[in-house]
Design a protein around this nucleic acid. Structure first.
Lengths: 399, 399
DNA sequence: CGCATTAGTTGTACGACTGAACTATTACCC
DNA sequence: GGGTAATAGTTCAGTCGTACAACTAATGCG
């Protein structure tokens, strides 16, 4: 008993655990669920068997379990013009299981519930100003919104699988701790208990979750599997997605591109250092450079740029910082989010020029810069998607 | 047959394949092998069972297979002063299976064979000058050295599991292609066939493999599980190790810290851009700054610094670039290799100051800067270790 | 209407892990 | 010195998940 007690820690350290018979089933259940969810068009049982390499008999029992658990739905058998028994197409189940995305940001609170098809089944967004706010009060209010949403979906027969709370700051997801969120004026607190929810909620950085929302892809463009997501606002945050998974570094504090050196002789930054990217390509800096007040709405800047009454010089600095990023991590696709999405037409030339000049591997690979596809409040969508991804990763918990 | 043909690709794309019965065994075989190899002190069968969570009966059969395959060795049973049947300690087998590390660098060729205990069982190092050399001739010569080593170890009854060829340049490990190695004057070639070896050899970047050598740890200090390894020489390369595994980005071209911006108003770099780190902290820049010829040996610089006849200003630039690195990927331990290992005493203060100033998370985490532990020609050791790690990851191939 | 074709199901076989009982070997204590 | 407790390792029946093959189901086509 004493020695056995150390087993879980050791297993966790090495990242893998003993595999039993039922681990096999869990693994294959995930494999089948993924095949159904990620396939470009609906697959039949036989199609799943072909694409996974599992035997048809095995797939049948696994699919039956997923259907019984309410994760997968059978469409009416479709006779596709060719001989043979018609296939039964399998699709993600609608309105049975939902993931909750929660967010506190400088200008709004929000909760969004997504089902397995990616559809928004309930939502509350509360605009406001949460500069230097009281964490307990704000998170309490957010908790109320979440309870409203939660009741709404459970009343409709759905199950809430869990939640993700997006916060604009340094967050340690493993410890459930917010270290500091400068724009909220929050520091060193455990946000989840203040929500007062009877639900498995984890915290995450806002830019990281917004990046995950990109994985859904746009209507026209497919989402890349690996990309760097850069969210430009007052602060500038980034997330690294490799093979559709977040790369978090040791503590989830990576992607602080806003404080990369652009010019050591540049202006002093709020972080104390000199010449950080934020001083060139942060929202306030861009506004000032265009002769607008720093807290003017983004649309004002876009209007000026459209009219030709201002120029956007932030692209050079952004491109320089992105070139550093690409040189250091080698991810060839850059997705620009936040304010940069709308500003991309005036940024693209300078950014691409800087990448071409400074990225060592530029001659050998096509670097892509594209606008974010996810709509407003992307972190809400990303958070809900992450919860659902976890359901998908371990469907056996729902069987 | 037509549909089944797509299975492997699909499985490969999603990163996981169908799990059969024998996958279970493979997984657990790896688990047991890892427990034996990575444990701080030798474990018995019962100890492995406790640490992995597998049943004793299962562990026994798995261990027996590993012993039969020559990967694990049983030490004489030891009576440890306490009651009960004495345990049989299990340790990595000596001189049964070896991995080969190969390297072409500017000033030498080398081949090193390591066995599972990490001991060097054979080695050839050939100093020389391979600036602007002929790839076919040089790789042919290296192939001869490798054949000598290979014959030596097979004559002693060992099996060669494979090899890794380390090259100082942009390497695509997946495609087995060297894009460009500026200091060798090589570009766009497939190096492995030129070795003329009847062996599974893959290419890799020199700094990446040198980083893996660090995982063995020093005699005094344990190796960290996650770190950034920076190798300073004429060029400056880096590798990212997370949970004891290389993070390679999309193509293995990451870690190009030598071309991170230190000052856009700085001197022009060989890459075409301005103010790259290499122009401040590359070996030639450091030599010049100390009033030495750019190709002087490192010992000359160290002698001057010891005597107080020169100052090393590279630390500020290096610290600035490292701060960018840490802000972007959040790895708290930095291991300095190459020329930096010996220069660390004169770099440390400036590097740590820059990290403290520029790293956003600095107040919340202790950043560590340490010297590389692996000895000379670390890439040879790292390459051999990677081959052996692959043996460990799939022992079933040897059973 | 029968045959070829494809989808899905059923049943047997096999392989891998588990738990419990068993053997082996030592320390400790009276 | 012998009995007892303790620990290591082995044996064996039991259980579970997948594979393979044979089967049923449902459709198109000639």
């Amino acid at each position: 008993m004493t020695t056995a007690g150390t087993a879980p820690e050791t297993a966790a350290r090495s990242g893998s655990a003993a595999a039993r018979q039922h681990s096999l089933r869990e693994h294959n259940l995930e494999l089948v669920a993924r095949a159904v969810f990620e396939g470009p068009e609906p697959l039949s049982r036989a199609g799943v068997a072909a694409s996974t390499g599992l035997a048809r008999a095995t797939v049948s029992t696994l699919v039956d379990q997923l259907v019984a658990a309410g994760l997968v739905r059978e469409l009416p058998a479709v006779t596709g013009g060719r001989a043979g028994r018609p296939a039964v197409p399998l699709v993600p189940a609608r309105r049975t299981v939902v993931g909750l995305g929660l967010e506190v940001n400088v200008d709004y609170l929000g909760v969004r519930a997504l089902d397995l098809t990616g559809e928004v089944v309930a939502e509350r967004v509360l605009p406001g100003s949460f500069h230097d706010s009281d964490p307990a009060a704000v998170l309490g209010r957010l908790g109320e919104l979440a309870r409203e949403v939660s009741h709404e979906v459970t009343a409709a027969g759905m199950t809430v699988a869990g939640g993700r709370l997006a916060l604009p700051g340094l967050v340690d997801p493993r410890a459930g701790l917010l270290q500091v969120a400068p724009n909220l004026g929050w520091s060193s607190l455990e946000p989840v208990p203040l929500l007062g929810l009877d639900l498995d909620v984890r915290v995450a950085n806002e830019a990281k979750l917004a990046a995950l929302a990109e994985l859904a892809g746009g209507s026209d463009v497919a989402a890349p599997d690996s990309f760097v997501f850069v969210s430009g606002d007052v602060g500038i945050g980034a997330a690294i997605v490799v093979d559709r998974r977040l790369f978090l570094g040791e503590r989830g504090w990576n992607g602080e591109i806003g404080h990369v050196v652009v010019d050591p002789a540049g202006p002093r930054c709020s972080c104390g250092a000199f010449g950080c990217l934020e001083q060139y390509a942060g929202k306030e800096a861009m506004m000032r450079a265009a002769g607008l007040p720093p807290d003017a709405p983004l649309t004002d800047l876009v209007a000026r740029l459209r009219a030709g009454d201002a120029e956007l010089t932030a692209g050079r600095a952004l491109g320089s910082a992105l070139a550093d990023f690409v040189n250091l991590i080698d991810i060839g696709t850059i997705v620009l989010g936040g304010a940069y999405t709308d500003l991309l037409p005036w940024l693209r030339v300078d950014v691409e020029a800087a990448l071409g000049e400074r990225v060592l591997a530029a001659p050998f690979v096509e670097l892509q810069v594209r606008a974010a596809q996810a709509g407003p409040h992307a972190a809400l969508t990303g958070g809900a998607r992450e919860v659902l991804a976890q359901v998908l990763a371990d469907p056996s918990a729902w069987v």
